[in-house]
Amino acid sequence: MTTSVSDVPVRAAISAIVAAHRGHRGALLPILHAIQAELGHVPQECVALLADELNLSRADVHGVVSFYHDFRREPAGRTTVRICRAEACQALGADALVACVRDRVGLAPGETAADGSVTVEQVFCLGNCALGPSIQVNDVLHGRVNVERLRSILDEAVSP
């Protein structure tokens, strides 16, 4: 499903979010987070709309959206698997987890299954360094994840 800011409900939601933050210093980031929370992603068409609303250049808005990995340009799958690739988790086997996810669900970081069931993301810290390697499945954080445990977590999370 594609979300378009030309859809009246979507445009109304974005306008309400902008209005709630208008006048706040540094409003772009909170607005982008609120749009993603509301829509599940930040549609590309938002860039021009936000630039106009906030008196910013399109390049400024695009730069922020593309710089922060947390902002999605397309809707995520029903299940989101985030693999920490920061130094502590890398040292403890994050590469093996990426390979496991690729083998188990056929996706590399940054990809979403065609049926919308799963999105795989890499992140550069989940704040769980002492228990690395770490993953997050939807909103549940898992530490000390090895390949065997990851297979079990994926089987449970992705099963219909």
Rank of each mutant, 00 (worst) to 15 (best):
76 A>T: 05
33 H>D: 15
130 A>E: 06
151 R>N: 05
1 M>P: 02
94 A>E: 01
129 C>W: 05
9 P>V: 00
38 E>K: 00
97 L>Q: 09
57 S>H: 07
57 S>C: 06
88 A>Y: 11
52 D>S: 10
122 Q>K: 09
90 Q>P: 03
143 G>M: 05
31 I>Q: 06
134 S>H: 12
8 V>A: 13
117 S>K: 07
2 T>W: 03
53 E>I: 13
93 G>N: 05
148 E>D: 08
60 D>M: 09
26 G>P: 00
58 R>Q: 15
73 R>Q: 05
89 C>D: 04
55 N>H: 13
100 C>D: 06
4 S>L: 08
62 H>C: 03
43 P>F: 00
126 L>E: 13
107 L>I: 09
107 L>T: 11
139 D>G: 03
79 T>W: 04
18 V>P: 11
43 P>Y: 07
156 E>N: 14
73 R>N: 11
91 A>E: 07
94 A>V: 08
98 V>Q: 02
6 S>Y: 13
38 E>I: 10
25 R>Q: 13
96 A>H: 11
142 H>L: 02
6 S>H: 14
63 G>F: 05
135 I>D: 01
86 A>G: 12
35 I>Y: 15
137 V>D: 03
33 H>A: 14
60 D>K: 11
18 V>M: 03
157 A>M: 11
101 V>S: 04
71 F>E: 00
31 I>D: 06
86 A>N: 15
95 D>E: 13
78 R>I: 04
143 G>P: 07
3 T>E: 11
143 G>F: 04
104 R>F: 06
138 N>A: 13
133 P>I: 09
13 A>G: 07
30 P>I: 02
134 S>E: 11
136 Q>D: 02
29 L>K: 10
151 R>P: 01
53 E>Y: 08
159 S>P: 01
31 I>A: 08
60 D>Q: 14
48 A>K: 15
83 I>F: 07
135 I>M: 03
101 V>N: 05
154 L>N: 13
75 P>N: 12
82 R>V: 08
87 E>K: 10
158 V>K: 05
6 S>K: 05
64 V>N: 06
68 Y>I: 13
76 A>Y: 10
16 A>W: 04
140 V>S: 11
2 T>I: 13
71 F>Q: 01
113 A>N: 07
135 I>V: 14
32 L>Q: 00
37 A>E: 09
43 P>S: 04
119 T>R: 04
33 H>G: 10
109 P>N: 08
143 G>R: 12
29 L>C: 12
84 C>I: 14
62 H>L: 14
109 P>K: 02
29 L>N: 04
133 P>R: 00
22 R>Q: 15
35 I>C: 07
123 V>D: 01
139 D>P: 00
32 L>E: 01
18 V>E: 08
99 A>H: 04
118 V>H: 01
